[in-house]
Design a protein around this nucleic acid. Structure first.
Lengths: 183, 183
DNA sequence: CGCACGGTAGAGCGATCGCTCTACCCCGGA
DNA sequence: TCCGGGGTAGAGCGATCGCTCTACCGTGCG
């Protein structure tokens, strides 16, 4: 039931991430999830719903992935960036799944909302960590800067590799936090 | 001749930028360029060639756009970032055309090369500006950081708007350069 | 045993895709 | 006046798309 749906969503996420949104037709998605076409459409009644399902699954998985970390200081604030580096290292990186979905479905309002929600939550995560470590800092400006580093890291990993891109992003993040009096 | 080809390439660039790569079929591209299907295929013998033509056109236009600027100092180094802000403000921003193309055609080696070439030239531009202003700086690490800000700015503009994203990127860039002793 | 249920396999629908090809038209030069 | 070249318009090809629907199968329960 929900278990089947979860298994399908996981497969959709993996396939869209590895092959992109344009390459995989519904029949290929069905085969990858190892279910019948009827069952696939039972839980995800349209291709757009399959994309949304994959994005929801990914949003959940990523939020879990970047949770926690050292309790305070710059390392606490930058923890999501460090974790993103590790994430990109084990996932074969083809850029950001959400931005790729936006590129593939520029006219879908539902997908646009899912992507925007994910990115908003991500920046809020940075804001929360900043305020936890330095309650008096300019959390709005700093979280915007860290969010920008996060996006840049995701895409730059395609060209420089995850390790180098993560090192660059972390170095820049530390510099920016240090200039704001956070260490 | 080459004039017709140029006009078609310009139209392809604009259409792919505004509507994305998945939305526009060849017939729509033809109509947008205001030529016959036969002529379109004469200069761009396949859909992939049309995409490559748009990317080449955009690469040229963007290189021209970010050329020049103040002769030295941090403002000289960061000039491409400032110009990108203005660029994104007049083009309706749907992210980076090159990354969108990569998302739409993950299996095309030719497109991958075109994108990689563009990004490599872009970072080389930063490196050149750094060495011109501060010959002894760590141009490799700094240009990687500025490139990352550039990519982040392009994508973050989707959510925060071009103006705010550009301000964030420029502020971060100045901080990073200042920490490296460049002002 | 008989039967309802939840699943599978996969043929087939109409629409659209990238691309080709035929038929036609306009215009400058002999 | 006639003709050839280079353009246009757009019908039509096979393939593939997202999606629906029919026919069938195994299993648990009365």
């Amino acid at each position: 039931m929900t278990e089947t749906q979860h298994k399908i969503a996981e497969s959709l996420d993996r396939q869209f991430a590895e092959m992109g949104f344009a390459t995989q037709g519904v029949e290929a998605l069905r085969a990858g999830a190892d279910v019948s076409l009827r069952t696939l459409y039972k839980y995800f009644p349209s291709r757009e719903a399959m994309v949304l399902g994959a994005l929801e699954y990914r949003d959940q998985a990523y939020n879990d992935w970047i949770a926690g970390g050292p309790g305070q200081g710059a390392a606490h604030v930058l923890y999501p960036l460090a974790r993103l580096g590790d994430w990109l290292e084990q996932v074969s990186s083809t850029g950001c799944l959400f931005l790729n979905a936006l590129a593939a479905y520029p006219d879908s309002e539902a997908i646009r909302q899912a992507v925007e929600g994910h990115k908003t939550r991500l920046q809020a995560q940075f804001r929360k960590r900043l305020l936890h470590t330095a309650p008096d800092c300019d959390a709005e400006a700093l979280s915007a800067a860290l969010f920008l580093l996060h996006e840049g890291l995701t895409e730059a990993a395609r060209f420089h590799g995850p390790k180098a891109a993560a090192a660059t992003a972390l170095r820049s993040g530390n510099t920016i936090l240090l200039a704001a009096g956070i260490k």
